[in-house]
Write a protein that binds this DNA or RNA. Structure first.
Lengths: 213, 213
DNA sequence: TGTACATCAGTGAACGCGCGTTCACTGATGTAC
DNA sequence: TGTACATCAGTGAACGCGCGTTCACTGATGTAC
């Protein structure tokens, strides 16, 4: 006999949990997080409302799981692209594609925070994974220019980079890459370029290409 | 007799409307837009719920008024700073101060969009006012570098700049300024730099200084 | 200046709604001997 | 292989809640003669 693996009950549980999340994402895509309703999900699943409490302790618990999955997904996406040899330009495109595939998922992580709500600790750990990849990617290309005041400032504030040996200039590049990408992308997804007809992808290309210009 | 001016009833109306908005902002600051409740506002004002319908047609009407006011406020702030001689660096600081003064007001405008909701037309007009100021500010300093692909792209997509005679390179700078500022600022306000201890203001300084580097 | 009338701010009761969540239960599924 | 028991997914009724919104009304305030 090989070792057990998940029992059929466990597999069933995992499956139903996944279906619940699936419908939750659909609701969020349609009307945003505030409109997410346990009862509505249950109805779509063809079960009664209270049944969901077998799978999630409460509404907040479900939302937290979704947030965790979203972080996990983007971290894996970025990591995979990096391992596949993607440079900064390619990484930016990968992130943009990931975000446009489900804008509300992007906003769930990087959008308007709910005052008072604090994400669980492990999600910040996952977001550090993303930064770690970016730092690696930014370290690939040599730093040329002289140290800026912010570089110097970063020398004294680099605990967040963990044990990464990258010089401050590299951390600076990683931050610039990330904030520039987010700047264009979040405005694009929010529709703030709606009237303007230019291609935000081109702007992103040049913004990230000019990182540490 | 001098001309009439607002009647006392009109002045009263304006005053109560202002008080309602005031309490609305407080609620939003505390728990975000979704938590905004007409009944709760009425209670704080010491009046009954239905009374508010004398001043706003419904909840959406109130939210729309808040959005409009927020746009108006930032447009006036930016315009005033520009007229006062502020350069790009100063403009960035002014916007950041405005945003930090009430982060949820910033997010009401530039944060997570509610799928399906469309802001009234005049708000996009006001947001164009902001862009107009930025274009003026970006035109002040001479363009040096050669035209980039995005510059060329913008030549054909510049209707949004209205009748502004600025060259595409200037529009490019204005967009870069705006997206870089928003990129750092929105992540800062959302708490994504919470663990890291660096000063986002310094990062913004260098990001906007490097616009068109 | 005084009276008659119209305007309109605010009240209180009531509406239906959907929400999250609890509880005691039924019945199917898996486990142990 | 068959029976006895424990586990646990799902149900249905019920809870209290606060929401937005309507309606018919009272009473104060401003206007016209």
């Amino acid at each position: 006999m090989t070792d057990a693996g998940p029992s059929s009950r466990e597999r069933y549980r995992a499956q139903v949990r996944a279906e619940i999340k699936q419908h939750a994402w659909e609701q969020i895509a349609e009307a945003g997080v505030p409109a997410l309703s346990l009862n509505a999900i249950a109805k779509k699943l063809g079960m009664s409302g209270p049944a969901l409490y077998r799978y999630f302790a409460n509404r907040d618990d479900l939302v937290t799981a979704l947030i965790r999955d979203a972080y996990r997904s983007i971290a894996d996406t970025v990591r995979a692209a990096h391992d596949g040899g993607a440079d900064l330009a390619a990484l930016a495109r990968v992130v943009r594609d990931w975000a446009r595939q489900d804008p509300q998922r992007y906003f769930l992580i990087y959008g308007t925070p709910v005052p008072g709500y604090h994400a669980p600790d492990d999600t910040t750990a996952i977001s550090h994974e993303v930064m770690a990849v970016l730092i690696e990617a930014c370290g690939a290309q040599p730093a040329e220019a002289a140290a800026t005041p912010f570089d110097t400032h970063l020398e004294d504030h680099r605990e967040w980079a963990g044990d990464h040996p990258a010089p401050a200039a590299v951390l600076h590049r990683a931050l610039a890459f990330w904030t520039r990408l987010h700047g264009v992308l979040s405005l694009e997804l929010a529709g703030h370029f709606a009237g303007m007809r230019f291609d935000p992808g081109l702007l992103i290309d040049e913004e990230v290409a000019a990182v540490r210009g």
